[in-house]
Amino acid sequence: MAGRFSNWVKSSWLLSVLLLMLPLHAAAAELSGTFVRGGRDFVVVLQILPAGDGKIVGRLRTASFDAKGVKHLFDRPVSGAASGDSFIGKLEGNWDNGGTVAISGSLSGGTLNVSAANGLNVSLRRGEEQDFNRIVELLANKSNATQQENAQRESAKKTENAINATVSRIKALRFDIGLFANAEPRTVEAKAITAEQYRGLTQQIRDKVDQLEQITQPGLESVSKRYALQADMSRAETATLRVASEVFDAQKNFETQAAKLSSGIGEAQRACGSPGVTQALRQEWALLPASSSAFEQINKGVGDSYRILRDARQKAKVEQQELRKRTSAFMTQYQYRR
């Protein structure tokens, strides 16, 4: 409601001024014609025609291009009254596009100074419709060129950022390879010491089976001894599984890290073969082969060690399965001898 009231006040004020200026018939002819002004990123054209009894009608158009190259157009009919070298009137509109806007102008030395309530404040010179169109085309071409330059700069920046990211990844990769080469041989050595328990635990089970097979006499005491020996064998088997689990987890971690580092080396090789390689990237790339070679050696050596531990686990598993079968066969024969 406040907006409509404001618009009504503007319209009433304009009407009062126009009524006062109605007798000034000849002034409108002095202001008639086309006036144009182009700027760095905009162009304005105002066309004014006399409408009799000092009145004028016309059309105001503007075209501008924002920083992103988007074209913005403004096109409104003009109506009002002239007095001497000046006019006052309104830009017609509706509430969807901002409503009616007051506009005024004065002609001095061939320059028409125009201002409007929407913020327009520009000095225009006499020209033609084609002048406006020509400037619009020039601005559009300039805008396209600017957009292309911006796109090229953005593309170059993205390339630079990608190369810098590759440099950082290679640095991190070499650091990770260093950690890998230092830690993994120690880990597999520790697990090899742990895996030596396979032999001892299997021997414990074998000793218990030998003892079990000696208890053939009936009686509750014999039954109790048999079950006690079975419990000892079960604890040894559980200990074997725990050792195997520790070795398996260590091997899984090793293989995961090795796969990640191998993939990183491959990505670095592909990145260094792409266009736009910088000096910083060349320097990092020159250091990578030594790290890559160290990785390959550690990967093979530690991998072979884990395969040996896997074979040791499989051997212990087979031996313990055979001992379990012996135990089962004996208990089937003697467990009910009380």
Score class of each variant (00 low, 15 high):
Gly3Asn: 03
Gly3Val: 07
Ser6Leu: 15
Ser6Cys: 06
Val9Lys: 07
Trp13Ala: 15
Leu18His: 04
Leu20Tyr: 02
Met21Pro: 00
Pro23Thr: 09
Ala26Gln: 06
Ala28Arg: 02
Leu31Pro: 01
Phe35Gly: 06
Phe35Cys: 12
Arg40Thr: 11
Phe42His: 04
Val44Pro: 00
Val45Leu: 14
Val45Ile: 15
Val45Arg: 13
Leu46Pro: 00
Gly58Ser: 12
Ala63His: 02
Ala63Tyr: 02
Lys68Arg: 07
His72Met: 13
His72Asn: 11
Pro77Ala: 13
Ala81Thr: 06
Ala82Ile: 11
Ser86Thr: 12
Phe87Gly: 05
Lys90Asp: 01
Glu92Met: 10
Trp95Glu: 12
Gly98Pro: 01
Ala102Tyr: 01
Ile103Pro: 02
Ser106Phe: 08
Ser106Pro: 02
Leu107Asn: 08
Ser108Met: 09
Gly110Cys: 10
Val114Phe: 03
Val114Met: 05
Gly119Trp: 05
Asn121Ala: 15
Val122His: 02
Gly127Val: 08
Glu128Gln: 09
Glu129Phe: 10
Gln130Ile: 10
Ala140Tyr: 01
Ser143Cys: 12
Ala145Gln: 07
Gln147Asn: 08
Gln152Trp: 06
Glu154Val: 08
Glu154Cys: 08
Ser155Pro: 00
Ser155Gln: 09
Lys158Leu: 14
Thr159Ser: 14
Ala165Val: 04
Val167Ser: 07
Val167Thr: 07
Arg169Pro: 00
Arg174Phe: 03
Arg174Thr: 07
Arg174Gly: 14
Gly178Ala: 09
Leu179Glu: 05
Ala181Ile: 05
Asn182Cys: 03
Ala183Lys: 13
Pro185Gln: 06
Arg186Gly: 04
Val188Gln: 10
Glu189Asn: 14
Ala192Leu: 10
Ile193Leu: 13
Glu196Tyr: 05
Gln197Tyr: 01
Arg199His: 03
Arg199Pro: 01
Leu201Gln: 07
Ile205Tyr: 01
Asp210Glu: 11
Gln214Arg: 15
Lys225Thr: 04
Gln230Met: 08
Gln230Cys: 09
Arg235Asn: 03
Thr240Ile: 08
Leu241Ile: 03
Arg242Gly: 06
Val243Ala: 06
Phe248Trp: 05
Asn253Lys: 14
Asn253Arg: 13
Thr256Asn: 08
Thr256Met: 10
Gln257Glu: 09
Gln257Gly: 12
Ala258Cys: 04
Gly266Trp: 00
Ala268Cys: 06
Arg270Leu: 15
Ala271Pro: 02
Ala271Thr: 05
Cys272Gln: 04
Cys272Met: 08
Ser274Tyr: 00
Gly276Lys: 04
Gln279Trp: 04
Arg282Phe: 03
Glu284Thr: 13
Glu284Gln: 15
Trp285Thr: 14
Leu287Tyr: 02
Ser293Cys: 06
Ala294Leu: 15
Phe295Trp: 08
Glu296Asp: 06
Gly301Arg: 11
Tyr306Met: 11
Val318Pro: 01
Glu319Arg: 09
Gln320Gly: 02
Gln321Gly: 12
Glu322Asp: 12
Lys325Leu: 15
Thr327Lys: 05
Met331Ser: 07
Gln333Leu: 14
Gln335Ser: 13
